[in-house]
Computed example of a mutant assay.
Amino acid sequence: MVSNDAKRVMPQRARKEEDKEARRRQLLDAAMALYQGSSYAEVKMADVAERAQLAKGTVFLYFPTKEALFLALLEERLFAWFARVEETLSRGEGRWTGARVARVLAESLEGEESLTRLLARLQTVLEQNVTEEQVRGFKERLLEAVVRAGALVEKRLSFLKEGEGVRFFLQVHALVTGLRQMADLAPVARAVHEAAPHLEPLRVDFTRELTDSLTTLLRGLEAR
C-alpha cells in the first residue's frame, strides 16, 4: 500500500521532470531558430538563453558547452530523418533500383539544410568539447539506426552483400558532408559568382549532386 507521503512525492517528482524537459525543449528550439537564421559561429549561448526567456546560467545546467547543445540538436534531427528513411524503405512499393534509392535519400534531405550543416560539423566541431558519456550515447544510437537502415537497403537492392548497407550509409554521410560544404558559399564567394556568370559550373546543387553521386556509387556496386 502506498503511503500518503509517497503519493505526495511522486506527483512532485513527475512535475519536476516535466519542467526539466520543457526547459530543455525551450533551449533546443531557441538554438535551432537562431541557427537557421545565421551560422554556428554566430550563435551564442547567451542569445539562446535570451530567446528561450531563461537565465543564461540555465543553459549550462542542461548543456555544459555549446557543442553539447548542438550535438543534442543534431541527434534529434538525424534520428528523425533515419525514422523517415526507414519508413520509406519499408513501405515503398514497386521495383527498387540503385537510382531510386539514391533519389529517395537525396530528396529526403530537401528542407533539411540545418541537419546537413550540422552533420558537416560533427567530427570537426560537435564531438570536440563534449563528454564521453554524451558521445557514447550518440554513437550507440547511431549504430543502431545505421544497421537498421542498412539492412533495409540490402533488402531493396539484392546486389548489396551483407554488411554493405552499413558501409553505404557511411558513404552517404561522407557525400552529404562534402557536398554541403561545397554548396554553402561564403558571402564573398556568392558575390563573386553573381558577378561572374561564367563561374556557374563551379556551383554545387546539393540535391542534384547527391542524387548523381549516390546513383553512380550504387551502379558501380551493381556492376561488380
Rank of each mutant, 00 (worst) to 15 (best):
M1T: 00
V2L: 07
A6W: 01
R8V: 01
R8S: 08
A14F: 07
R15H: 12
K16G: 10
E18Q: 02
E21W: 11
A22Y: 00
A22S: 13
R23H: 11
L27C: 01
L27F: 02
A30M: 10
A31M: 12
A33H: 02
L34Y: 02
S39Y: 02
S39C: 08
S39G: 00
Y40H: 09
E42R: 05
K44D: 00
M45E: 08
A49C: 01
E50P: 02
A52F: 08
A55N: 09
K56H: 03
G57P: 01
G57K: 14
T58D: 00
F63C: 03
T65H: 11
K66G: 03
A68Y: 00
L69N: 05
L69T: 03
A80N: 13
W81Y: 13
V85I: 10
E86C: 09
T88M: 04
T88Q: 13
T88R: 15
W96C: 08
G98P: 01
A99W: 03
R100Q: 11
V101Q: 10
A102T: 05
R103P: 03
V104M: 11
A106M: 11
E107C: 08
E112V: 07
S114W: 14
R117Q: 06
R121L: 12
V125H: 01
L126I: 14
V130L: 09
E133W: 06
Q134A: 07
V135D: 04
K139P: 10
E140R: 13
R141A: 06
A145M: 07
A145R: 08
R148F: 03
R148W: 07
A149F: 00
A149D: 04
A151R: 05
L152R: 03
V153T: 10
K155V: 00
F159Y: 06
G163N: 06
F168K: 04
L170Y: 15
L170A: 15
Q171H: 13
H173N: 03
V176Y: 12
L179G: 02
Q181F: 15
M182H: 10
A183P: 11
P187H: 13
A191H: 11
V192L: 15
H193Q: 09
H193F: 14
A196R: 15
P197D: 00
L199Y: 04
E200M: 12
L202D: 04
R203H: 12
D205K: 03
D205Q: 10
E209T: 14
E209Y: 05
D212Y: 13
S213K: 12
L217F: 12
R219Q: 15
G220H: 15
L221A: 00
E222P: 09
A223M: 14
R224I: 12
